Every structure is written in structure tokens, then in C-alpha cells.
Amino acid sequence: MSERAGKLSRPDGEHITWRRVEGRGPTVVWLGGFRSDMEGTKAQALADWARAAGRSYLRFDYLGHGQSSGDFREKGTITRWREDALGVLDEMVEGPAILVGSSMGGWIACLVAMARQDQVKALVLIAPAADFTEKLIATEMPPQGRAALAADGVWLRPSEYGEPYPITRTLIEDGARWSILGADRVPIEVPTRILQGAADPDVPWRHALELAQALKGDDVVFSLIKDGDHRLSRPQDIARLLGVLEELAAL
């Protein structure tokens, strides 16, 4: 089956760019990571799988990402990207959905699953960076980063994947509103599969395991790939991801 593309208009005049493969449900929805887009290796691999298997699949770019509109620094909050994901799910997905969230997308997927408990039937989380603004950035920010935030409201955080990432004060403060790791259990009870690299320099495997242990449901499988990095985009990683999806789609 072919893949269609389009734009979803938002109330503030911005638009979210999406691509869709029509097929049988449940619809698999891709939620990308921080500063990533829907052209990445894993997102494209899922599109190829969906076409070959006749599965329904939807991917999109958050505002400020990829082909969607909006300035990253202005639109860059967890509140905004959660709203983007909910808008896509509400307006473009009929029936049950399986959310596949990578890195920050794993956090967004959890927030969406909590808000749409009747529709989200399963989660696949790849190196899930739950609460990353608070637990993985703010706590490890160097003195020069804190000075930049205080003076300019933004810190350009060095990245192994290209240009520095702009980390804004607004992003850090807003992220605290959506924290899910803490004293209470995370109220998600759908089947959840977590794929995590032990050699991930960005999301320590113990951080992902903390999320797995906090989920309220019992059908949670945590897979630790000993030589896996953060992206988990190697052929063997993609094969593992597709195997998990096949399992969940058949439930």
C-alpha cells in the first residue's frame, strides 16, 4: 500500500505534517524523540513494515520538528508536544492504537496513554526518557549551562548527533508539570514492551528500568540489549522492534 502525506491544522494557525499507511488495525502511531523527525531509520522501517504487512500506520512531526511548522524554541515544551500527539490521535485515528515512542517519545506516549485509556491498547517504548527535562538534563547541567539559562533563557547543549540542542528555561520548567516518576505508580495497565540499550549514553538503562517498575500493569517486558546504543537503529534492533510489534498487534 502507498503512503499518503498531509497537514493537520492546529487552532493557533500552526500545522502538523503527517504520513499515513492505510491498513488493518490497530493503528501503529510513531512518536519521535527530542529534535528528531519522522524521516528517521526506525520511523521509516515501520512504514516499510506496515506497507508489506497491510497494517495501519501513522507518523508525524511535532511542532518545531521536521516538516511541521513552528519555531523549536518557542514551541518546545512537553505540554505542546503532548497536545500535538493527542490532536493527531483524536483527529486521525479511529479505533484502537499502539503507540511506539522513542526517547522523549516514550514519555509522550505514556502521557497520551494516560489521557486516552480506552483507545491506547499497547505501548512500545524505545529508550524511554520519562521526565528527562528534570532527571536527565537539569540534574546533570554543567555550571555554564545554568549560567546560560539564567542569562539568556537558553542553553545550547552539545550533542553527538549534530548541532547543539537548545534547552530553554521554559522547557525545563514546563517538563516538571508532567513528571510521572515518583512516589505513585504510573497509571498505565496496557501491555508494554521496553527496548533499552545497556550502552546508551543518553538514557541510562536504570532510568528506563525505573519506568518499567513504576507502571501499574503487570504485562510489562523490559529487554536490555547489552551492546545497544541510544538509537537502537541497527538491523538487529529494527528486527527486534518489528517482532515486538507483531506480537502486540496479534493480541
Rank of each mutant, 00 (worst) to 15 (best):
S179D: 07
R231M: 08
G13F: 06
L58K: 11
Q144L: 15
M114Y: 00
P166M: 12
R20K: 15
G23K: 10
I137T: 06
M1Y: 08
L224A: 10
G23V: 08
D61R: 12
A148E: 00
D200S: 09
D118E: 06
P142W: 06
R157T: 13
T133I: 10
G70K: 10
R185I: 15
G228A: 07
F60D: 03
E14R: 15
M114P: 00
V221N: 10
R169H: 04
K7F: 10
E160S: 15
R20E: 13
A239E: 01
R4L: 12
D90H: 11
R35N: 14
P191M: 07
R146C: 11
R234Y: 02
A113E: 03
I78N: 06
K7A: 15
S179W: 01
L245W: 00
P143S: 11
G33C: 05
A249D: 05
G66C: 09
I78W: 04
I194P: 01
V154I: 08
Q213G: 15
H230F: 01
L149Q: 06
K226E: 10
L86F: 05
P201D: 05
P143A: 15
E39Y: 13
T170V: 14
D218H: 13
D174W: 03
R193V: 06
E246M: 13
A249E: 05
D84G: 07
A199Q: 11
G197S: 04
C110S: 14
L156F: 06
Q67Y: 09
A214S: 09
E247G: 06
V154F: 01
R234W: 01
A129L: 09
Y165I: 15
L251Y: 09
G33D: 01
D227I: 11
E160T: 15
G217L: 05
F60L: 08
M141K: 09
A250P: 00
T170Q: 08
T77N: 02
A249M: 12
E163T: 15
V124A: 09
D131H: 06
L245A: 02
T139I: 14
V93A: 07
G95E: 03
A85I: 14
T79K: 07
L195T: 04
A115N: 05
H65V: 09
P204Y: 01
I225K: 07
E247C: 08
D184W: 05
L136F: 03
Q44D: 11
P142L: 13
E140H: 15
W205N: 12
L195M: 02
A148M: 03
F222R: 09
W155D: 04
L89I: 04
S9E: 09
P164Y: 04
R19E: 12
V244Q: 04
R185A: 13
Q119C: 07
D237V: 10
T168H: 01
Q236R: 15
G66Y: 01
V220I: 08
G105W: 00
L156G: 11
I78H: 06
I108L: 07
R10S: 12
P96G: 12
L251F: 09
